[in-house]
Design a binder for these strands. Structure first.
Length: 619
DNA sequence: GCGATCAGAT
DNA sequence: CACATCTGATCGC
């Protein structure tokens, strides 16, 4: 959950995703997406009053976010103060001090964030440098290199600071199966269930938040049906979503909710109250989207986990994994990175230290800043090729050395100014690298690969089925639900990296239908069934290609609490723990100890080459 | 009665 | 499996 206090040190008169306390004095507001933890104070009476006396203070967000926000009556008063912005359309905004008339100009560009419908990042460009506020995001490895507005010509823009969604910035979360792979697994499970009879229905146990819509869209499309939801109101202006949801309960796929929906489910009822269509009891399975992650070397993955007689978990993540974040950061190489989330079990200090390693090298920065006057552009030195231990294959060759470009004189000045002042923002330690502090090595991540990844050909293949995120931009005027995962502007030759799965149609073999009530057999090892994946066509950018798409795991009966379940009295394990799913931290993925970091810093300070030094495994 | 905050649950 | 939300208890006004 975001703990970002709302302001960026470079542009402190702007508030983002926080609207209480000191943010009440902002000259402009930005909302990255419509999740409650990013809307703190947004319905506050204090803010409402302020707006009524202001001529210039506005809230900027995407068209979709505006639509979702105004759908909630509590926020309806914002209507006349919202300025929706198109994606990827740089817009100049005046930040006006209404008391003094003082004014500052800033150019903001909304970039698709892939987190939920309408979610965006904000790129600010102004006299205090280029700053990227990511909001919450999930971007596949490589996508950053295709984001036009992070580039100027063929060069990467000089980013002073990134305010980062660091939810999974921890090696524990090294990889999270791609959206496509997760969708494929869910799709397969759903298909195998609902095809058995009209009374076989699926309950998607989704949280009360935006972000599951692409799941609904894809399932609706694949099974030529609509998904039952509580209300359609918020989508009334988003036909691309609207056409796949319904309030008609007579469908086999439900995502409806009820405060006591878990109890309902235990009683073989759907949250909407559906019990039976024509007297025949429904056969319900629940699928709960939840985040699953795997270590750096973990090869055996499954995107579906059976957690009970008729309950499943399905992999689903709103946030980028560690490796996805690293790809993002190592491409942009900002001077500073400020985490907006501290992963559970970590401290701000730890996260800050780890993020420092992803910041631009000090030496680089010094050369950058102190160029002679008149030299506004420079090509970055080619990034050294990582040694054999490189994890390049993980990133699919996307480590093409980014080239930076200064945009103008005023931004050079901004860089000078901001890099010279290590100022703290609220609760985040500054990551500015100063003389007193040895610079972290930019390429330390190159040592993290175990080098045992298989070399696989990148599949450029045709996409048999594209995810919703890959739909063509229909350029309909806003609101566009595509804002959700818009990557359609990413058009360069590397686009093939995204083309994931061709066929996910893993065939269930034998009586592998997850019939949880009668005819399921549990193998002695506790694994009831394995779905063979069609793995042949996957990109090698992650581990997908060497894994079955779907592996359904039947938890072992642990002999402890067991209870009756199902309509035929089969004993099922109550508390399921998937043995395969207790993913241990990979040995390489431990937290760096203080002394290890000290050693690293000593080496850096001494100018020693640490490229081969893995700070995590030293000792 | 409303809002803020926290614990707890899902 | 750790995301975002909801509910209820408590406190303060």
């Amino acid at each position: 959950m975001s703990s970002f206090a709302g302001r960026m040190k470079e542009y402190p008169t702007i508030s983002l995703d926080r609207f209480d306390r000191e943010n009440l004095h902002a000259r402009a507001y930005f909302l990255s997406h419509c999740h409650k933890d990013h809307m703190k104070g947004l319905k506050g009476p204090l803010l409402k009053r302020k707006l009524q006396f202001s001529r210039t203070v506005r809230l900027y967000c995407s068209f979709v976010t505006k639509e979702l926000l105004l759908n909630n009556p509590k926020y309806a008063f914002w209507e006349e103060y919202i300025v929706p912005l198109e994606l990827e359309s740089p817009t100049q905004i005046s930040l006006v001090d209404e008391a003094s008339g003082e004014k500052e100009e800033v150019v903001v560009t909304l970039l698709p964030a892939g987190h939920c419908p309408g979610s965006v990042m904000f790129l600010f460009e102004g006299s205090h440098g280029n700053v990227l506020y990511t909001g919450d995001f999930r971007l596949p490895v490589g996508d950053v290199s295709r984001m036009e507005h992070l580039h100027s010509g063929s060069r990467v823009k000089d980013i002073q600071s990134i305010y980062l969604d660091s939810t999974f910035y921890d090696p524990r979360f090294y990889q999270i199966p791609s959206r496509e792979v997760c969708l494929s697994g869910i799709s397969e499970l759903v298909g195998n269930w609902i095809s058995q009879s009209p009374h076989h229905v699926v309950w998607l146990n989704c949280k009360a938040a935006y972000g599951y819509e692409y799941l609904f869209i894809n399932l609706g499309e694949e099974f030529n049906t609509q998904i039952h939801v509580n209300t359609l109101a918020m989508f009334k202006k988003m036909p691309e979503i609207l056409s796949y949801v319904t309030t008609d309960r007579r469908t086999q796929i439900h995502a409806c909710r009820h405060p006591k929906d878990e109890e309902f489910f235990q009683g073989n009822r759907l949250p909407c109250g559906c019990t039976a269509a024509d007297g025949t009891p429904l056969r319900i399975i629940s699928i709960k989207p939840s985040t699953m992650w795997f270590g750096e070397r973990t090869k055996k993955t499954s995107v579906i986990i059976k957690t009970g007689g008729s309950s499943y978990r399905a992999c689903f993540s709103f946030h980028s994994s560690y490796s996805e974040i690293k790809d993002f950061l190592s491409y942009l190489q900002p001077v500073n990175i400020y985490p907006s989330v501290i992963p559970i079990g970590r401290t701000l200090t730890e996260v800050t230290q780890m993020l420092k390693l992803m910041c631009r090298k000090q030496s680089d920065e010094a050369a950058f800043v102190y160029k002679p006057l008149g030299v506004l552009k420079r090509s970055r030195v080619q990034r050294p090729t990582c040694d054999s231990e490189s994890d390049d294959e993980l990133f699919d060759g996307l480590d093409v050395a980014p080239v930076r470009k200064k945009l103008g004189v005023q931004k050079v000045e901004g860089t000078l100014e901001t890099t010279a002042l290590p100022v703290c923002v609220e609760e985040s330690l500054p990551l500015t690298i100063t003389d007193a502090q040895p610079a972290a090595h930019n390429y330390v991540d190159c040592t993290e690969s175990n080098g045992e990844e298989e070399e696989e050909e990148e599949q450029q293949g045709d996409e048999e089925k594209v995810g919703a995120g890959q739909l063509e931009d229909i350029s309909s005027q806003p609101p566009r639900w595509e804002d959700f995962f818009t990557t359609e502007t990413l058009t360069d030759s590397q686009n093939s990296l995204r083309s994931q799965p061709q066929s996910y149609c893993s065939e269930m073999t034998g009586s592998q239908t997850p019939d949880l009530f009668s005819d399921e057999e549990t193998a002695p090892d506790g694994f009831s069934l394995t779905l063979s994946g069609s793995q042949s066509n996957h990109s090698s950018q992650n581990m997908d290609s060497c894994l079955p798409d779907t592996l359904i795991i039947q938890p072992e009966l642990d002999g402890q609490k067991q209870r009756e379940e199902g309509d035929d009295g089969i004993i099922q394990s109550e508390s399921q723990q998937s043995s395969d799913f207790d993913i241990p931290c990979t040995p390489e993925s431990k937290v760096p100890r203080r002394d290890e970091l000290s050693q690293l810093y000593r080496k850096l300070a001494a100018g020693e080459d640490i490229r081969a030094l893995d700070y995590r495994t030293e000792h």
